[in-house]
Design a protein around this nucleic acid. Sequence first.
DNA 1: ATGGTTTTTACTGCGTC
DNA 2: GACGCGGTAAAAACCAT
Length: 325
Amino acid sequence: MTDTITRTYTGETETERETVSTTRGEERERCPECGGRLVSDSEHAETLCGECGLVVEENEIDRGPEWRAFDAAEKDQKSRVGAPTTKMMHDQGLSTNIGWQDKDAYGKALSSRQRQKMQRLRTWNERFRTRDSKERNLKQALGEIDRMASALGLPENVRETASVIYRRALEEDLLPGRSIEGVATASLYAAARQAGTPRSLDEISAVSRVDKMELTRTYRYVVRELKLEVKPADPEHYLPRFVSDLDLSDETERMARTLLDSAREAGVHSGKSPVGLAAAGVYAAALLTNEKVTQNEVSTVANISEVTIRNRYKELLEASETAAA
DNA sequence: ATGGTTTTTACTGCGTC
DNA sequence: GACGCGGTAAAAACCAT
């Protein structure tokens, strides 16, 4: 145990470097190349660096109205129609689909000739829609992502980012030699972490068809090739879930937060499993707020051993005492 | 492959309900 | 006596070199 701990913890989380002097937040506002301030250019829907001009983000969506309509005629003239596009569907939700009901636009039943025609159209429509391998690939992968995400209770925006990541992986030809499942799972794992609602590798691989080994391998690969910026998992992100799973109060959660904060100051975080820290934080906080939880219960919901909780929570309490003094 | 670190497993002793 | 808790030692897992 030296003072210069530069070990990177990856058990939970592979590729990132966690040092004692963790800088908190706001890196997002900085250019990854030169560190300059970012400015957004809404006219071109880009976010770029004020210093070196690197475009950090493209194709942002401007959700505001494009113009105003002052009377009904103008509204007719200017209005546009169509559902919003979404990356969650393999064709971004833009395709035309033929309804399965054999009804015409007025809801009347079709003649048998018409029905046969519609059946043929449906068949061909489906064939074209999923024509080339990439489309079919995407379709399957997005289905998988959706399935796993809902099994894990992940919000929509996570699925959406996962879809984007997968799409990029596909475009950059990262797929050959790897399973669709694996990459889809890795995308979801990365997306969940980027969105600040991390799920542990164990949780993810529990709902995925690929085993943990393959998942970690693929995840590493995808992150490296796509140059994804995934920060080390913040223990605090696990708190809300643990707290609610254990039926504890908000006060306990707040307490756990401050505990983890002071621990961070003391440098206890380095090289330790974020999940373990979070679990210990919850346990220690419950102790301080006189709510009853056993180490066993915490270890169950967090999937961490009791021993680890014991070790961590002692450190947490020590750190908070020295911080108070 | 190796070494250093963390986490897990398994077991033991103590106090309390 | 079962349970929660704390501690320890050895094994396993993991990452970096």
